[in-house]
């Protein structure tokens, strides 16, 4: 029983970590009024950048930072299109999602003799060292360091959004950019920063898959995580703490499918496969209630327009 409980906690946290980073990216961008469908693509870029850098430098920390920077760089494209050129933000995001896996595969092929996956690379450490508790019930609690970073990042984003002047400005820009503009807030600059930050977080999310959970980039390493993260943003009512909770819920349902599907009395895996979706719908109906996006979310701001 204790083993199963600890396992449940461990798997939940492991599974939710990349989602949390992705969701934080979504929250920051959308609170400033820019829809970011491209989280998935930015995560893919972070995943390949992290794994490749870790391979060549043998330093996973540098790799983690590079993953964030690369995600931010891709987000810059999104920012240019959606903030400066007032393009349709969904289209720009979709374009990034289509482009990113192609770039990732291309880079991977160029760097690794045409292989579609990287070799095994250096991983970020675990909080109690590489194989502490191995073989004991507590093994699952030896979390990836990224899991802790994800929690810290959530607290930081919450603090910045709700307890600082700049956070208030971000939220104002997302609700009513024209009003914010008249008060002297630079809407474009704020949105640029937020979109780039969202890419940085998404990049971290990708890397927390390829240099923490597993230790290589494969084409399927990031498959749909960005979209689940976006669902978590909506589910968590566009707040960092809510999105974090939503990611934990998604992780927990996955952990449940695994624990219920194994052992001596396995539940058929086909039934379990629908559990995450069924549980999401139930929680959404019973506990979450109405979820309202920032007013100006997805609307490009054009100075002086009414």
């Amino acid at each position: 029983m204790l083993t199963n409980l600890l396992l449940l906690i461990g798997i939940t946290l492991m599974y939710s970590t990349p989602l949390v980073f992705g969701a934080l990216g979504g929250v920051i961008s959308e609170r400033s009024g820019v829809t970011n469908i491209g989280i998935e693509g930015m995560m893919v870029i972070g995943a390949i950048a992290g794994a490749a850098t870790s391979y060549f430098t043998n330093n996973p920390w540098i790799a983690f930072l590079v993953a964030g920077l690369s995600g931010g760089l891709v987000a810059l494209l999104h920012a240019v299109a959606s903030v400066s050129f007032a393009a349709d933000q969904t289209v720009s995001g979709v374009a990034i999602n289509l482009l990113a896996p192609g770039i990732a595969l291309f880079v991977c092929r160029r760097l690794f003799d045409g292989a579609a996956m990287t070799p095994i690379v250096a991983k970020l450490p675990k909080i109690f060292g590489e194989s502490a508790f191995a073989g004991t019930a507590y093994a699952g609690l030896n979390l990836n360091i990224t899991t802790v970073l994800a929690l810290v990042a959530t607290l930081a984003v919450w603090f910045v959004l709700y307890k600082t002047k700049w956070g208030l400005r971000v939220r104002a820009v997302g609700e009513h950019p024209a009003a914010a503009d008249t008060l002297g807030i630079n809407v474009y600059k704020t949105r640029y920063i937020c979109v780039i930050l969202s890419g940085v977080f998404a990049g971290f999310g990708g890397a927390s898959m390829t240099i923490a959970i597993i230790s290589q980039f494969t084409q399927t390493a990031i498959s749909g995580h960005g979209f689940i993260a976006l669902a978590a943003v909506i589910f968590g009512k566009w707040t960092p703490q809510g999105a974090y909770g939503a990611c934990l819920l998604f992780g927990c349902t996955q952990a449940l499918t695994i624990l219920l599907g194994g052992g001596s009395f396995p539940v058929p895996s086909t039934i379990l496969a629908m559990l995450p979706y069924a549980m999401t719908i139930i929680v959404l109906i019973l506990f979450v209630g109405r979820s309202a996006a920032p007013k100006a979310d997805g609307v490009p701001y054009i100075k002086g327009s009414r």
Partner: peptide, 25 residues
């Protein structure tokens, strides 16, 4: 012996989690 289906060919995290649960077992 025990076995479990991940219902996916591309979900590394799930594969890892199933393995962890079997190892704990």
């Amino acid at each position: 012996y025990e076995g479990q289906w991940a219902e996916s060919f591309g979900d590394a995290a799930k594969g890892k989690a199933i393995a962890q649960s079997q190892i704990a077992d």
